[in-house]
């Protein structure tokens, strides 16, 4: 799946990183608890979250993720967007709630890493 497909599926608005939309991603995770993302996530490229603070951006960067989707139309601050831009991350937000957003991506083939093994 390409990041542009995520944008379409979630009817999401891109906040930064427009130039990376053609990058391929193979798995995703959804969490508001960054501790869990740092503990359990492996090779997921996309993070869906309802949490909005600068540590979300840093956590994604530490995990080598390339795209963050904020659910329920949550809007990151300008500082967060700037931080993401510096790190080459795509940020977008969607009106959809976490459960629905994850479900839509999952049923369209973007799985969690625990299920799919390359």
């Amino acid at each position: 799946m390409k990041i542009s497909d995520i944008k379409t599926l979630l009817d999401a608005k891109v906040l930064c990183g427009e130039e990376h939309l053609d990058r391929d991603v193979f798995s995703a995770c959804g969490s508001d608890m960054m501790s869990d993302v740092l503990a359990y996530v492996k090779d997921q490229a996309v993070l869906l979250t309802g949490l909005v603070n600068s540590q979300v951006i840093r956590t994604a960067e530490m995990m080598d993720m390339i795209c963050i989707v904020f659910v329920r139309s949550k809007k990151p601050t300008d500082d967060m967007i700037e931080l993401a831009r510096e790190s080459g991350l795509v940020l977008m937000n969607t009106e959809k709630r976490m459960y629905e957003a994850c479900g839509l991506l999952y049923t369209s083939g973007l799985v969690g890493n625990g299920v799919h093994h390359e």
């Binding site: 508001d32 608890m33 960054m34 501790s35 869990d36 540590q55």
Partner: peptide, 23 residues
């Protein structure tokens, strides 16, 4: 894992789940 003395406000920021040192 899971033991934390972090205050609640830290949990609302996405941390303090008692995973730091084990991680």
């Amino acid at each position: 894992e899971g033991y934390s003395t972090a205050p609640d406000n830290i949990r609302s920021l996405g941390f303090g789940a008692g995973m730091g040192l084990p991680n």
